[in-house]
Design a protein around this nucleic acid. Sequence first.
DNA 1: GTCTATACTTCGATAGAC
DNA 2: GTCTATCGAAGTATAGAC
Lengths: 187, 187
Amino acid sequence: MRMLFVDAAEQILRDEGYIGISARQVAARAGQKTQLLYYYFRTMDDLILAVVRRINERRLQRFEEALASADPLRALWDLNSNPAGAALSAELTSIAIHREEIRAEIVRSAQQFRAMQVKATSRLLAHREDFPAAGIVMIAAALGRMIVSESALGLTDGHHEALAIVERALLDFGARHRDPHTSPPAA
Amino acid sequence: MRMLFVDAAEQILRDEGYIGISARQVAARAGQKTQLLYYYFRTMDDLILAVVRRINERRLQRFEEALASADPLRALWDLNSNPAGAALSAELTSIAIHREEIRAEIVRSAQQFRAMQVKATSRLLAHREDFPAAGIVMIAAALGRMIVSESALGLTDGHHEALAIVERALLDFGARHRDPHTSPPAA
DNA sequence: GTCTATACTTCGATAGAC
DNA sequence: GTCTATCGAAGTATAGAC
């Protein structure tokens, strides 16, 4: 039952953003009475914290999967630019700005997530010292997030060109990394 | 008097973000009765629209100034990464997401602003066909916005490295563009 | 655990006196 | 133009019966 509310809250977070999460709306989407929510969660911040933690867990899991893929650099980019993930990342930032009680948790996990990405990227980009991994990770996260949030508004000017730059960088960065005796990927 | 409310609303937008803009809070900050606001503005959307329009006008003005500067490429980057401007841009996006009535205006002006930046940048980067101006502008806007919003949370991991990449690109892009007979800038 | 009932706040907005 | 008064909806949250 507790999870029913967490599910509903996360669904609202995806559909309408953090602003849409209210006790009444969460309960309605869960098909429950508003007051029951307060039996399972002391305050709304408690509920939102539970949502945040679950999103973080899943994000770390996706990260591990990306690392294990055949083209980890591209998989990391996909992780940063896929609509659902990037939108949630943006909403987490929004929550951190407006809910002081939850800020620390979000900042802490964002730092953890970024550190893991930097570590992995710097291993993959060891041959490109001119591009510090931490900077590349920042740019990827920022660009992915903006493309997603703008697309939701129907604003896509420049997206194609930005993606072309990323695409070339992925091919370029990946080129010297792969074993030259292996055949190149299909596309 | 009308402007008094617009000023108050914009101030709240800067300090607390779009979420903080309510009739009561705007009136309070303007030192006026809440109901008076509805004499000057039919709805809250009307007020917010007035704020949005003024922000856009000022942004275009700043853009013109940047173009006229000695190092326009760097000035454009400063425009995208300066805390006040980037924060407002992010809030405009947030407004566009949640207020349907205002969305069109924000999207339209964002397109206009981007088109102007792309036009200017593509002139400045004519010698670098490998980097489409529209993509560079996207990356600059995305990165600037994210650095600002994260800094507000005390999250600065990777910012330094990302700024280093931008710095190098600015020097690199600017290098072939400047007249070789002119002495390079001080710093 | 789940229910009914309810308190208190803030929200956008309107009516009507002056 | 500016005031007092007020509405209904939605926000978080609690008390107490079952």
